[in-house]
Design a protein around this nucleic acid. Structure first.
Length: 605
RNA sequence: GGUCGCAUAGCUCAGCUGGAUAGAGCACCUGCCUUCUAAGCAGGCGGUCCUAGGUUCGAAUCCUAGUGCGAUCACCA
């Protein structure tokens, strides 16, 4: 059941807003009562009408039989509102029929807008959206893919809704885990360098796995010598060496820092290739190695103002018990920074760098729900007014049937491999269908990638971010039904129609044309009319899934129209032109919707 | 144990301010390509909306309790 929500964007008064005023007037005229709001929903297909007023809530103000009240209000609307051409009442539902001219006028007013559904930038305050935020010791996997797709899409949706947006990430470029792969490389690497077949991030990731293997072997040996497992964990020589390396790094040891810079650069180069492959980008980057010091400064500041307190051993804490949470450490007893310190520093640094930012979105997995709750609270306590506009875009893990993905054990679905597999599948299907014989190899390759990526992105974005995804590599992602390729296919099919219309020089329609709409055409226009509102809702709720599901509904509606009504076989030239105009706006809407999902649309497929 | 999230058809998921007979896709079964691209369309099969109470004219949706799954509660990040 589709309900209509009052739009907040700037546009001509919507149908619902117009009707609301009239329904209120009707209640006033008929019953001398004031309604505070009117409840609307789309009329169910089995009843005549376009929009339905629910009478039940009015009973709080007007006493009586809902059917009788519905009849009276309906009659009033019919007599007083030009838009209304009929009505019927079923139980407590007043179904209103709207004049076709309303829909035709609406259609004519938007049909040539390339940016249909998008709102021009209006807010002076910008939003910073963080996503990806990888560690620099391993390549990106399917979990990162979900993160990156969600973050990128939410950023694009916010832009489309009229916000200024900065896309960013925080790079975990320091710490013991980075030293682990560095150490393994130093010991076993034999000066190996990235090659065309082995990207830098993969190379570094291999040594992270190598470290874990060697480390486990050492542990096993120590246990065999009689140590407890716990002791062996702490005493394994490799781990001690890694810890030593971290200390050297912090002390600025030339050799260690040099290796760190070299290997991180390999990883960054590898990441860039993957990001480009996925089709996402960033406006600005932040590195933990640069922001933790600022965090420490503000911890000191918070100590002075009483936001934090110091324990006997010198560690610094924030007492959140009044807010129903625990005490949280913000600085170690030895004065070094913890995770929270860095995040405080990063947030403040970002506002310093971009003073027009009034809020931030953090795309981070739901295992950090608590962390962000605390972070936001601390920033509020520190007195930053932007702290009230922070949002944790939390999402569920992507698990494999075998359990969690673990980079150090090599049980991950690699991002690059996955994309390649998706393209391969698209190629297979495409070859079976054999529609692209006249495409050259480059064109084909690019198309397979568009379709494969479209399938992957849609598959991930159409579900509620909160839900965890169980990804079975053996069961391939669908290319039929509620999928990216299905929608891309519809787009391509419309392009084919438009090419034909273009070569036939078919005229376009105008407001003055006396068009008689077919039921399917009217349904399509109604669905199109919802799009701007869907963008706004998706922005408010940070939900690409709303866009995906809307687009699917639109496309289903179009396909039904397409299969049941002939476009070029229309009875009159006017009808033909109208159907082509309608198809054009549908394809433009698909394109715009997919743009904010980060999915490309093909001209043919 | 405390806290947070999730639970809807065999499977994957929609279902937004509480509204009419809970919707899609996959899978399975019927039809439809000499006509604008069949990655499609038209239809069939399939439901204890986790359980039990409660609020309401009306509950998948809100409240309470419970069950199951996941996460979290580190001087790790």
């Amino acid at each position: 059941m589709q309900a209509f929500k009052t739009p907040k964007y700037n546009r001509i008064m919507t149908l619902q807003e117009t009707l609301e005023l009239h329904v209120k007037a009707a209640i006033k005229a008929l019953f001398q009562s004031e309604l505070t709001s009117v409840e609307f929903q789309a009329t169910r297909k089995e009843f005549a009408g376009d929009i339905t007023v629910v009478v039940f809530p009015m009973l709080r103000v007007v006493k009586g039989n809902p059917v009788v009240i519905g009849e009276q209000v309906g009659q009033y609307l019919l007599d007083n509102v030009e838009l209304v051409k009929g009505f019927n009442v079923v139980k407590g539902f007043l179904n209103i029929e709207i004049n076709d001219s309303y829909y035709l006028n609406f259609f004519q007013s938007v049909k040539n807008k390339a940016d249909y559904g998008f709102v021009e930038q209006k807010d002076d305050k910008a939003v910073m959206v963080e996503y990806s935020s990888p560690n620099t010791n391993k390549p990106l996997h399917l979990g990162h893919v979900r993160n990156v797709l969600l973050g990128y899409s939410v950023a694009e949706i916010l832009k489309a809704s009229g916000k200024k947006v900065y896309k960013t990430q925080i790079i975990n470029d320091r710490g013991i885990h980075i030293c682990k792969s560095m150490l393994a490389y130093q010991k076993f690497g034999q000066d190996e360098t990235p090659t065309e077949d082995l990207k830098g991030d993969k190379l570094v990731g291999n040594y992270y796995v190598k470290f874990d293997q060697e480390y486990k072997a050492e542990m096993a040996e120590l246990v065999a010598q009689g140590q407890s497992e716990e002791d062996a964990k702490k005493n394994a020589p490799l781990l001690l060496e890694a810890q030593e390396m971290l200390i050297k790094w912090e002390a600025g040891d030339k050799e260690v820092v040099g290796l760190w810079e070299k290997m991180n650069q390999w990883v960054y180069d590898g990441f860039e290739v993957t990001y480009k492959n996925i089709g996402v980008d960033f406006d600005t980057y932040y590195y933990e190695s640069n922001t933790y010091l600022l965090g420490k400064e503000f911890v000191a500041e918070g100590l002075k103002t009483g936001v934090f307190f110091k324990k006997e051993d010198g560690s610094v804490w924030c007492d959140l018990t009044e807010d129903g949470l625990d005490e949280k450490i913000v600085l170690r007893s030895d004065g070094t920074a913890v995770y929270m310190t860095q995040d405080i520093g990063t947030a403040i640094q970002r506002i310093k760098d971009y003073p027009d930012v009034g809020g931030m979105v953090y795309t981070v997995g739901n295992e950090q729900d608590y962390h962000f709750k605390v972070l936001f609270l601390i920033l509020k306590k520190l007195g930053f007014d932007w702290a009230k506009n922070l949002f944790h875009l939390s999402y569920g893990m992507v698990d494999l049937p075998s359990g969690k993905m673990k980079s150090r054990e090599g049980t991950v679905v690699d991002a690059d491999d996955l994309i390649q597999e998706m393209a391969d599948t698209a190629e297979e299907i495409s070859n079976d269908l054999g529609k692209l014989e006249d495409y050259n190899e480059d064109e084909k390759k690019s198309l397979y990638k568009t379709i494969g990526l479209g399938a992957l992105k849609y598959y991930i974005l159409k579900v509620d971010p909160k839900k965890r995804i169980l990804f079975d590599p053996k069961e391939s992602i669908d290319f039929q039904g509620n999928t990216g390729p299905f929608i891309q296919y519809t787009y391509a099919r419309i392009q084919s129609i438009l090419r034909k219309a273009d070569s036939d020089n078919i005229a376009t329609t105008s407001v003055d044309d006396a068009i008689v709409m077919h039921e399917k055409e009217k349904q399509l226009i109604k669905q199109l009319e919802l799009f701007p509102e869907v963008i706004q809702n998706a922005a408010e709720q940070h939900s690409p899934a709303l866009i995906a599901n809307y687009t699917y509904d639109l496309v289903k509606e179009f396909n039904s129209f397409y299969q049941n009504i002939s476009i070029f076989g229309a009875d009159t030239e006017l009808e033909k032109s109208f159907r082509i105009d309608l198809s054009r706006l549908v394809s433009q809407t698909i394109k715009n919707a997919f743009q904010v999902l980060g999915i490309e649309v093909p001209e043919r497929m």
